[in-house]
Computed example of a mutant assay.
Amino acid sequence: MLATLMAQFEAASARYVEANGLTRDPDWYLLKLHEEVGELTQAFNRKTGRGRPKGRSPEDLSRDLADETADVLGHILLFAHAHGLDLEAAIERKWWFRPE
């Protein structure tokens, strides 16, 4: 299940990288993940009243939080894919269940 999702995110990322003339070296995956976690933190702070909403409606703030969470998930999966990690086995070890 996760292997398929990782491959789908990889294909989408490869298209984005090619369209924007970017290069993904080994550091890129972790640096980009770190950037996205920062954006998630900003969205969370705005949504929870800890940051300026910058004119965003409550619905916009909820959507922003969901969008940034999706970015973090995508970049976790890209990182795992780039490093050949078996996330399903790791989840089973660490969380004591098998992803279905």
Rank of each mutant, 00 (worst) to 15 (best):
F44Q: 08
T23I: 11
T41D: 05
E36R: 08
R52K: 09
L2G: 03
V17M: 05
R15T: 14
Q8G: 02
F79K: 03
W28K: 01
F9T: 07
G84N: 04
L73F: 11
D60R: 07
L33W: 04
A11D: 12
S13D: 09
T23E: 08
A7Q: 12
L87I: 07
H34K: 09
D86N: 13
L78G: 00
L40W: 05
L87P: 03
A7F: 04
L73E: 05
T48M: 15
S62A: 14
G21I: 04
R15N: 11
G55F: 03
R24S: 04
A90M: 09
E18F: 04
G21W: 03
T69F: 06
P53T: 12
V17H: 04
T23A: 10
V37W: 01
A3F: 06
A12Y: 08
A90H: 08
L77G: 00
L78A: 03
G74I: 03
L85Y: 02
L40A: 12
H75T: 11
T4K: 13
P99W: 08
G21L: 06
Q42C: 12
T4S: 12
K32D: 13
A3Y: 05
A14P: 02
H75P: 00
D25E: 04
L61S: 02
P26V: 04
D64P: 01
F9R: 07
M6E: 10
A12W: 05
A12K: 09
D64A: 10
L87E: 01
T23R: 13
R50I: 05
A89I: 05
L22F: 06
N20P: 03
H34M: 14
R15F: 11
E92T: 11
R93N: 09
E36S: 07
P58Q: 10
L87R: 02
T41V: 15
H81L: 07
L78T: 01
V37M: 14
A7C: 12
F9I: 06
A19F: 01
S13E: 09
Q42P: 01
L77D: 00
N20M: 07
A11L: 10
A80T: 03
L33F: 07
K54L: 13
R63C: 08
I91H: 00
F97M: 06
H81C: 07
R24D: 14
L5Q: 10
T41Q: 10
E35P: 01
E10G: 03
I76N: 02
G49W: 05
W28Q: 02
E36N: 13
V17N: 01
L73S: 08
H83S: 07
A43W: 00
S57W: 02
D60F: 04
A70P: 04
D71G: 04
S13L: 13
V72I: 07
K47Y: 08
R24G: 06
W28A: 11
G49N: 06
A14W: 03
G51W: 00
L65A: 10
A43V: 02
P99V: 09
Y29H: 06
E18N: 15
T48K: 08
G49S: 08
A70T: 09
F9G: 01
E88L: 04
Q42Y: 05
Y16P: 01
W96D: 09
D25V: 07
A7K: 13
